[in-house]
Every structure is written in C-alpha cells, then in structure tokens.
Nucleic acid binder design. Structure first.
Lengths: 222, 222
DNA sequence: ACCGTATTCAATAATTCTATTGAGTAGATG
DNA sequence: CATCTACTCAATAGAATTATTGAATACGGT
C-alpha cells in the first residue's frame, strides 16, 4: 500500500485543522464570517496586539482559509470560500453537542440565553411572508452592509437605547445577530422586552441563515 | 464586554479543533467513520505503534469525539456522534477546495482517480431504482457489516482477483469504497475493466451517501 | 482465584507553537 | 519625492505536543 502518499495527504489535512486549532484564529474566523475587515479592526475586535493578529492572519492565509486584498490604505481580509464558514459552523456544532463544558462556557458568556423565547429560521421565513413583525439586525453597521436578512432594519446594539422609541409598540420584534455564540441579540431583546414590547430571538445568525438556503440582502441601510 | 467568558468559550472550541489537528488522529477518525474498531485494529490499519494509537484515542475520547465500549476482551472505539463525521467531511472539503497541495497529494495517493468514469450519488440512486447494474462494496467485510449501500454486494478488494469470474459479464458494475480519500474503488475498477467488463466508480463513500440523505443497510453479507 | 492479553500509563527528549518586542517595508497621499 | 501609516518580519523565551520505551493495570475467560 501507498503509505507515504497517504501520510502526506493526512498531513495536509492536519495542517488545515491546525490552522483553526487556536482560540485567537477561531475568533478571527468568527469575525470574518460576518464581514471582511482590516488587520487593525480585527486586532481591536479580538483584543489582540496588532503584530499578533497579523501573525495569525498570515497563518490563516498561508493555509488558504482567508485572503487579503488591498483596499485604499488598508488590507481587507475575508474568508477564502464559504466552505470555511461551514467548517467553522460544523466545528461549533460538534463542540456544543458533545461537550458539557462548552454548554457551561456558553451559558457563562450568554447568561440570558435561556431567558427569552426563540424562533427557528424556518418559522421566521413563514412569518416574514405574512409581514406581521419587525426584523432587527443589532450587529455593527458594517456587518449589516456585508449581508443581512431581507427586510431587516439595521439598529446596532449600541444605538438601541437612544432609538428604542422608534420601534413599533405592538408588532412582534425579532432580534438577530452573529449567531449562537453572540450576545448582541440577547441584550437587545432584554431592552425590547423591558420597554413593554413583544420580542423573540432568532436562534441562528446570518451565516446559518444563508447556509440553510435562504436569501440575503446586501448594502447599507436604506 | 465579557471578555474572559468569551476567551474561555473559544478555548473550548479550539480544543476540539486541536483534537483533529494531527494526521494520525485524522486517520483514526477516517477509519472510525467506516466502522467501530479495537485499539489494535486501528493501530495496525494506521501503521502506528499500539501505545501511540492508544494515546491518540485517549485524546479523542477526552475531547468527546469518540467513545470506547468494552466488547468481549477488547475495547471498541466508535464516533461519539454523526456530527463528528460531518466535521471530518467538511474539513476535507475545505482542504481539497482550497489547496492545490492537497489536490497534488491526492493525485499522488490515488493515481488512477482521473482515469475512470464516475457517477454521483443522485445518478446512482436513479439507476438503482431501475436495477440495471451491480453495486460492488470493495471495503473490508467488517466495514460492510457496519453499514453499506442498499443492495450492494460485499467483495473486499483482496478477494476480488479470485472472484472476478463471479461478476456478470454485461451489466454495468459500480464500485465504491470509503470515500474520496480511498483507493480501493479505483483499484477494483481497474481490475473490472481489465477483465472486459463495463464499470464506473461512485464519487463518494458510504458516509457521504448517508449525509446526503439516502438509506443504508446493516449486517453481514446475505 | 488465577492467567493471559488488550489496553493504558509514565517518563523523556525532540520538535513545534505562541506572544512579545522592536525593527523593517510597501504603498497611499500630498 | 518625502512622509506617514498600516502592516509584516525576525528573534526569542516559554509552553505545549509528540513518539518511543518499558512498566503497570484491568478485565474476561477458564
């Protein structure tokens, strides 16, 4: 049997796995799933030093998971392929489904996640057709611009306290954010409900929505 | 923001990624996707020392990717969850689609892979309904027993040379094995075609067939 | 209760990975 | 062309990972 070729093949695959086997690099990928970003943006968002973020991005680039392209004075990194986002989701699924630790860590990070009602993408899709709710994207504006659910209103979490009054008083309000590892939708929902309105959280995020086969809209808030 | 909880969460995810970030452990998973096995079987099949295989299995077990259960005098390891198989497939998809290196390594390992015609699972499913072909599972018998395509005949590659004459002379023969990283179906097909018969290779393996939503049969050859 | 065997454990040296620091580079902007 | 900024590179010390060896353990069979 062709053992050396086999060994080499598995070594290549392990290199890819190794590229995602680091908490910082996973966080970078998690951010890039939402929208392309510059090195500095990524470093700030993930609380890393600039040099360290750059180094990790280099590694991801070498392995073919992300690509960088100059854009004015900065370099924007983005995922090389949607398959990378799926890999990240599948890793998350395995981790969350297997490990009680991860559940506990997730509860730690999203303390309100069991507190509010949720809705599945399929149920939301049905509701959207009937138009009886307001869909609220509470991620930063740049991530909204890079892709959002059709008909959603962009209202970043930090602006929500100021603009809460703009929201309709009676219609159901559906909040969503980056996905299951993101607290934004929980925190927004807490404010919405505290204001006396009815609200639910979408279980998943934009990337999961797209992988499930539903459409996205692109561009700035209209 | 809750940085320390976030850090811990990503660390847990990275642990899972780390568990698959080793060529030997990937090979163990690749084998376990096909069928449960004992430590010794796994060590032999992956050309590792027994202690080393055991150590790697421990690591996979600690991370929750496999589980071991005593069965008579040996301990059988199996995947903890089908999600693990999907993770392995998704990793393979990313690696193969991104890296020219992987394509090259794969060509090295499966030199005949471009040589013979292939058929997709969907096309095979249609053909099976009309029953105009013979479906040949050329994996070891134990893997056949753990799950195989409906109606397939078990004919392990090593027995093929002796039993080639049993195969029908005119019907189309479809060979399949573990999946895209496996050479068995290629080698079987080479023999089938050399004997003057018509044959094609199924592009994917048993695990991919199942993930695509098709049924499997279980048990020994009938 | 004992024996035999399948599996695991412990220790270790070689290799690989990581964050930090400070210097270096490429390219846009004027 | 000069300058400024965003980013990358290089060196390094500390930490983690790995294969091997030989010993230890645990369990089923008798």
């Amino acid at each position: 049997m062709n053992r050396s070729a086999k060994t080499e093949l598995f070594e290549r695959l392990a290199q890819v796995a190794h590229a995602i086997a680091n908490p910082h690099r996973l966080e970078l990928l998690d951010l890039l799933v939402q929208a392309p970003r510059s090195v500095e943006q990524l470093a700030v968002a993930s609380a890393m030093s600039l040099a360290n973020a750059s180094q990790h991005l280099q590694r991801l680039k070498r392995t073919g998971l992300v690509v960088g392209a100059r854009r004015g004075t900065t370099i924007r990194y983005r995922l090389a392929d949607p398959a990378v986002a799926r890999l990240w989701m599948q890793l998350r699924e395995v981790a969350v489904s297997q490990l009680a630790d991860v559940e506990r860590a997730l509860d730690q990070y999203r303390p309100q996640r069991q507190q509010f009602p949720t809705i599945t993408p399929a149920a939301l899709q049905a509701k959207m057709a009937r138009g009886e709710m307001l869909l609220l994207d509470v991620r930063p504006a740049e991530e909204f611009a890079a892709g959002h659910l059709p008909g959603a209103l962009s209202l970043p979490l930090e602006e929500l306290p100021m603009r809460l009054a703009e929201l309709p008083a009676t219609a159901l309000i559906v909040t969503y954010c980056r996905g299951p590892l993101c607290v934004y939708a929980d925190e927004a929902l807490a404010q919405v409900i505290a204001s006396g309105r009815r609200g639910v959280r979408l279980e998943e995020g934009v990337a999961e929505w797209q992988v499930a086969g539903y459409m996205l809209e692109h561009g700035e808030r209209s």
